[in-house]
Each structure stands twice: as structure tokens, then as C-alpha cells.
Amino acid sequence: MKKTLLSAAIGAAVLGFASAASAATLDTVKSKGFVQCVVNTGLAGFAAPDASGNWSGFDVDYCKAVAAAIFNDATKTKYTPTTSQTRFTALQSGEGDVLFRNTTWTINRDTALGFNFRTVNYYDGQGFMVPKSLNVKSALELSGAAVCVQSGTTTELNLADYFKANKLEYKPVVYEKLPEVNQAYQEGRCDVYTTDQSGLYSLRLSLSNPDEHIILPEIISKEPLGPAVRQGDDQWFDIVSWTHYALVQAEEFGITKANVDDIRKSSTNPDVRRFLGVEKDTKIGTDLGLTNDWAYNIVKAVGNYGEVFERNIGQNTPLKIQRGLNALWTKGGLQYAPPVR
């Protein structure tokens, strides 16, 4: 009896292996009942757990939006916190379903690493932060400085390229985890801190004396941050991409978390009605593999793109980040959604 049980268990384990390797992500997500998002271990404003272990932030809201689109319940999420070194392996190995971790979209990651990127939920660029007392006005004055940087990031590569291109010398001080980089900078192990500008604003807040540090004007790279999924599952890729587009489109329509119910009831605009899934015989949602009110569920759960931005990293948050490039295309920014029809 024991032997039969054992062999049955082994058989099941082998089958389990095989099925995990081939099933469509949406089916897996539906059957387990939650979306597993790979996020940062802790970056204020983007993804960080509070004292009671509840995650919040810009990236976390995206995870909630995906959950809302699938389950009509934004709480059906789980998070895998990763360092910049472990994030890709976590996604590759199926530890998470989608990567929402302020990750730069590069061709290498899109091809050789086996991921798919399509949307940019935050247009960023790499900058430098230095203590005011050093009296530095430009990154070009930084020759000879010790620079703190996180390992395994595009930041680390851009840093090497920028200093090489400008014939400047520097001493890299590299750590695997963000809090270690943070502490090293604060203790004066290095003179300069470099990462994406959004990250610099977030990290400056966590310093004991934020006013004594300035962020230099140079932006040395393009850092389009966006969600990534594994290659080979187009349906799942579409769901993640269109979750972002739905958020942007909702802002363009002026649909917010507060007024989405009213608009759904009273709107006569066919574009809006199609978007919210109330037009007759629409099958936009079901074509995605979801229900037709998917976009309504997203907005109802987390609001539109502008609300997500302002709530987590905008002017009324400690980060005080301007919309800048992340404004809608109608307001001079780059956020643009393809038509929902």
C-alpha cells in the first residue's frame, strides 16, 4: 500500500512538473485563484510592504488591476519580492506570473532573456544624487568619485558606459540589495548614488536628512519601465498589456474610480460604452479571455492611470514626482493607448 502511494505520488509529481511547463498562464492563474506578481523587495511608492505586510505602490496597483480584470477582485494577488538579480530567474522559472518591478525594457531582455515587453507604465531615466556639501553641479565633475550602484541593473551598465564615454574615472561600489546601497551612501562609503530618477526621489526620502542631497540635472539614459511576461503565451501577454492601456484610456476618457458607476449608467458615447462593456453584443472582454466588464473592474478597483500615479508617487505623496513624460499624449506626455475597439 505504501509503495503504491509512493509511486502514485511520484507519478503525480512528474505530471505536475510537465503540466506546469505547458499550461496557459490565464488558466493556471484562474485555477489557483490569484495572480502572483514579481515585485521589488521594497521601493517606496512603487512596491513596498507596510508594517502589517500589506503591499502598496505603483507596481502593486498594476498587479491589483490585473487581478481585478480577471477575478473582479483586486485582493486576489500574491507578491514575490525579488532583488534586481533574482527578478528574471523568478519570472523565468514560473515563480511569478508577471513582473511588475520597475524593470527597464531592453532588446536583450525582450529577446535573449525570453521575456515579452510591450507597454511602458513609467518613462524614466537614470540620474545621480550627491550630498550638497560636495558642491557638485554636473555629473561631468564626478571624475574620481566612488559611485554606489545596485548590481545586475541597466543602471550598472549605463554608469560604466557614461563614465567611459566621457573619459571620467570612478570607483564602483556595488551591492545586491537596495537597502545596502542606501546605507552605504548614507554612511559615506561612496560620494554618488545612481539609479533611475524615480528611484532617487524615493530613496532620498528614506535618508535621514533628505534636504542635504541634490539630484543632478543630467539624465544619462532612457529607462522605459514596464511589465514583463514569459514568451510563448500571447493571451496572457495581451491581458497584461491591455490592463495598462485600459488604465491610460480611462484617464483619457475622464473615467475615475469615483465616477465610473455613473458613467457606466448614463454615458451615451459609444467609445466609452464599448470600453466599459455595456454596449450590446460587445465581445472585447471575452476575446481577451476575460469578461466584458474587465475595464470597468480595473477602474473600479484602482482608478485610472492618473489616479494610480498620483496616489503612489505624485505631487501629494512624499515622492512629489511630476507627471513629465508620463502625462497623457493629449497633455504633452508619452502615455498613449491604442483604440479599444
Binding site: Q85, F88, R109, A112, G114, S151, G152, T153, E156
Partner: peptide
């Protein structure tokens, strides 16, 4: 450490 960075950059 250096292997980890390599792993991350190349996948």
C-alpha cells in the same frame, strides 16, 4: 557576486 551579475545580464 560577479557570476550573479553575469547571470542577470545574460539570463
Amino acid at each position: 557576486a560577479t557570476g550573479g551579475t553575469t547571470m542577470n545580464q545574460t539570463g
